[in-house]
Design a protein around this nucleic acid. Structure first.
Lengths: 290, 290
DNA sequence: GCTATTATCTGACTTAAGTCAGATATATGC
DNA sequence: GCATATATCTGACTTAAGTCAGATAATAGC
């Protein structure tokens, strides 16, 4: 009753009875679940029929009929794939986009009602993030994004907030050598964000120079996603991006108040070097040759 | 993308894709979901057909057919209700109990596999408890239990552990006036445990004396369930039990290192009184006349 | 005792979901 | 060019789930 297995099963019971109600956004618009799921998959940007079929785990016959019913409703259009005439791609019509938005609104309303129903939404959300990350890191994608995008700015804001909490003397971005966004964009550099089920949960910046040297900056992983190997994945992705840009030497600075970071660098081929800048915050400096 | 609603929706996506796999313990034994759910409801101790029908939200015709199919399989027996000959009650046969256990084993195995699949099981479990409580407190039941039961001992263990962490000088049960279990059992007293989806999440003891005076002891609420009004529900239940036992005066001692407890007592009709024992841990004393 | 209500059961439906065996057209490897 | 593989579609099924209108028997209110 009190062991880990019972606790998981209790979570299941609690969640299925609520999430059942939470996740019935596919209902309520007079359309069978299957058709609604296909419509939403297309609305989320999936267009390749075979990919949707695979994603939703549908039989090809069933899929075909669901597509016909959505076409008859005037919500989607299908056409042959540009590269392979056996395949088909589907897109939403204007009416389809309207219907997809209605489903989105329904989902949002249900999520809002759920939060309103429960006390302590902050603590609840933190726990939900934690679980979302634990279940989602394996599905998380690391993608290159503009350092000025909403997602990137969200990550950076969280990163600065955390430094302010962890450094004894606080942290003020203005006093640090804040990299120019242009240096973390192609062709000079890159900015990578880890996205799990739509939520940014980590980032890393590659700040290029004029030469074949670049600096790793702003490595951050959301508290809810720590210990799951995401930092290493981000660093690997950053190295890959550096190689693609023809960079041969990587450098980074960090602080001994962030021991988990130092540990990561030491175990992934970085070696400590002498101070190479006069930024007041870092006290540890690393280099890696690619 | 980063607001509360998105976070809830992300949780949903993460959980439904995993819990879908987590919660398919009703499958895999060659029996349709409906029949498996009815069998499990009976296995969990529900016997009244109308109650099961209500619990599972089934049509009476459908329910009737599901019962017939389980009877034909030899897993259940039905008979008329002792008090009302229109109603029927169902019980598992020997084969039914075996089949129910097989479902339980499947559920346990899936929960175990789930934990094994994920890093940081401790943090994950803590978050799951938190969500389980947030979703489950409203469904939690407060029931009288033997203070030596597994559930009660679990609560008390957690309670002592917490005192040890929160008191500057630590906490040693042996030095405190540990109530005799017999004083917290009928007819002298009572011990109440709050159970949410099978997990004990709070407790309170009513320690009786020979007279019409009793003491409230061991009020504890699991960290994952705090801030949801459970302590007040436990106290109300304890008062109810005291009244039922003919008790007219309640007392309790607490410590100013537990400010949330003092706050609760002050706002629910208790008044501070002078020290009434020489226990080394408490420094605040309250009384309430019923 | 009579009427209305309730719990269960049965038969006759509908709908959604899914399976399976081809048919058709296209792509790939040699 | 030809055999093989692949993507989609169609028709003919099955199964599960659920709905609805009575039938039957028992209970409750008066």
């Amino acid at each position: 009753m009190l062991d880990a297995v019972s606790r998981v099963r209790r979570f299941n019971r609690a969640v299925t009875s609520e999430v059942g109600a939470l996740d019935n956004s596919f209902l309520g618009r007079g359309r069978p679940l299957g058709a609604a799921r296909v419509l939403n998959a297309i609305g989320q940007g999936r267009s390749d029929i075979a990919e949707i079929r695979d994603y939703l785990g549908l039989d090809s016959g069933l899929m075909s009929r669901l597509l016909r019913s959505l076409e008859e409703e005037g919500l989607i259009e299908t056409m042959v794939h540009a590269d392979d005439a056996r395949r088909r791609v589907a897109t939403l019509t204007r009416a389809g986009r309207r219907e997809f938005k209605a489903y989105e609104a329904l989902s949002n309303a249900q999520a809002e009602a759920f939060l309103a129903r429960h006390a302590r939404p902050d603590a609840l959300l933190a726990a939900m993030d934690m679980i979302g990350s634990a279940l989602g890191v394996s599905r998380a994608t690391v993608q290159e994004m503009n350092p000025t995008s909403t997602e990137a700015r969200y990550c950076l804001g969280e990163y600065y907030g955390e430094l302010a909490r962890r450094f004894a003397q606080g942290f003020d971005v203005a006093r640090s050598r804040d990299p120019d966004a242009a240096d973390m964009r192609r062709p000079r550099g890159a900015f990578l964000v880890a996205i799990s089920d739509g939520l940014p949960i980590g980032c890393v910046g590659l700040k290029g120079t004029d030469g074949d040297l670049a600096e790793i900056k702003r490595l951050w992983v959301a508290p809810s996603a720590r210990g799951l190997g995401l930092a290493r994945r981000l660093m690997d992705a950053a190295e890959g991006a550096a190689r693609a840009l023809g960079i041969t030497v990587l450098r980074l600075d960090t602080n001994s108040a962030l021991p988990e970071a130092g540990q990561l660098y030491r175990t992934s081929g970085w070696r400590e070097i002498a101070r190479f800048n006069d930024d007041p915050y870092p006290d540890l400096f690393f280099e890696k040759r690619l």
